[in-house]
Amino acid sequence: MSYNKRPTQKNDTLNFKITKSDELLPFLLSQMSNRSRNSVKSILTRGQVKVDDHIVTKHNYPLRPGQSVSVLKNKVAVRENVLIGMEILYEDKDIIVINKDAGLLSIATEKEKHRTALHQLMEHVRRQDLRNRVFVVHRLDKETSGVMMFAKSEKVKRKLQDNWKELVKERTYVALVEGKLEQREGMVKSWLKESKTHHMYSVQDKNGQLAITHFKRIQHNDKFSLVELQLETGRKNQIRVHMSDLGHPVVGDKKYGAKTNEIGRLGLHAKILSFHHPVTNQLMLFRADVPKPFYSKSK
């Protein structure tokens, strides 16, 4: 076999470089032959496996040459202080700012209650004091990566949500979209409505929620474009709908018309969040590096 039989080890993580097409579970079983099939499946289920910095739990996830697979070791994952699929960028007595991986839910759903950013942060703060809590201020879609903020009290949550436009100074996203975006920069303005099937769509009759997105092309080729986006409003699926409206849906976004899934995830990343601290009023800026495949696919 042409796989790397000697994975590199860094920070309690096994790292593999893919040299041959395969599916994720069979690949892991071949590389972790000292473990039982059930043990390897449990590692996948717990969210300990990333493909190109994207949490993957799907057993038959297709692997392509050139991709990187990393596995967080069991002994590390079960330690109380390890967060899976995210890292804390900043924390004080009022707020927590994280960098969330694609593939991690922000909050619980009917199907998944525990493997979420909120649940992990709740456990994190309760290690200091069982009375501590964490509150959702805004959300990122499961398949969107990047900067996200949480409040540590109901009072701070309300202040952030009630004064979001005044406190938040910059929300910059980067999207890998389909096709060659000819327009160097511009703005999309529409009113968004939600269908009974939870599909967002644009209307021009002002009956929906006003949504404004500013965009600037960073680089492109004939197949893909890398676009930087500034949100003037923060509506559900706003960027995904607006890029689809332009005829350039976000890569991997089948829901809004994408025909490709070249990077194995949604091509959307929250790069910068800048805001005035809700208690100290200090201007803060947090940045999460853009995933490398976004750049390589749009060169």
Results as ranks from 00 to 15, higher is better:
T213V: 02
V137T: 05
G252Y: 08
T260S: 14
G103C: 09
M148I: 13
L28Q: 03
Q183D: 13
P278H: 13
V290A: 07
L192Y: 01
E23V: 06
L24K: 09
V137M: 04
E194Q: 09
I96S: 07
R240V: 06
G234Y: 09
E185P: 03
R115F: 14
K206A: 12
K159W: 11
K113H: 14
L72I: 14
E91Y: 03
D222W: 02
I218R: 12
D141Q: 07
L83G: 07
I98G: 04
A175F: 04
L160Q: 03
S36E: 15
V156W: 07
F224M: 06
N38I: 06
D289L: 10
N207K: 15
E87S: 14
G247P: 05
K169G: 08
I239L: 15
V241Q: 07
S202I: 00
N281W: 10
E170F: 00
S298V: 03
Y3R: 10
K10Y: 10
G252N: 06
F294M: 13
Q204H: 13
M86F: 03
V137A: 05
S202F: 00
K254D: 09
N60H: 08
T57A: 03
K299A: 10
S202R: 09
L24D: 03
N221K: 10
V97E: 09
I18Q: 11
K20D: 14
A175N: 05
I88K: 00
D12V: 01
T233R: 11
V56S: 07
S225N: 07
M86S: 04
V250S: 09
E110A: 12
H242L: 03
H248W: 11
E178S: 04
V136E: 08
G252Q: 11
V177F: 02
R35Y: 15
N74C: 00
I239E: 08
Q48T: 06
G247S: 11
D141Y: 03
V290E: 10
G264M: 00
A288I: 04
L283A: 14
N281M: 11
L210M: 13
L29S: 04
S145H: 12
A102T: 06
V125Y: 05
M200L: 10
V251M: 10
A288R: 05
F294Q: 06
I272D: 13
A288H: 02
Q204I: 05
N38V: 08
D22T: 12
Q48A: 14
L285K: 15
R240Y: 04
S145D: 07
V56L: 04
T144N: 08
K20A: 13
G103M: 12
N132F: 05
Q209W: 04
R131M: 10
E228I: 01
F275G: 01
L268N: 03
H119V: 00
K5H: 13
N60V: 00
R126I: 02
S202V: 00
D253H: 08
L89A: 08
H114N: 15
Q209K: 15
P65D: 12
V203L: 08
Q230P: 00
H119K: 13
M86A: 07
N34T: 14
F275P: 04
E112F: 07
E80Q: 10
H138E: 11
G252S: 07
M148V: 12
R64F: 11
K165T: 14
K152V: 02
L24F: 03
I43W: 09
F294P: 01
E143T: 03
H242M: 06
E154S: 12
M243S: 03
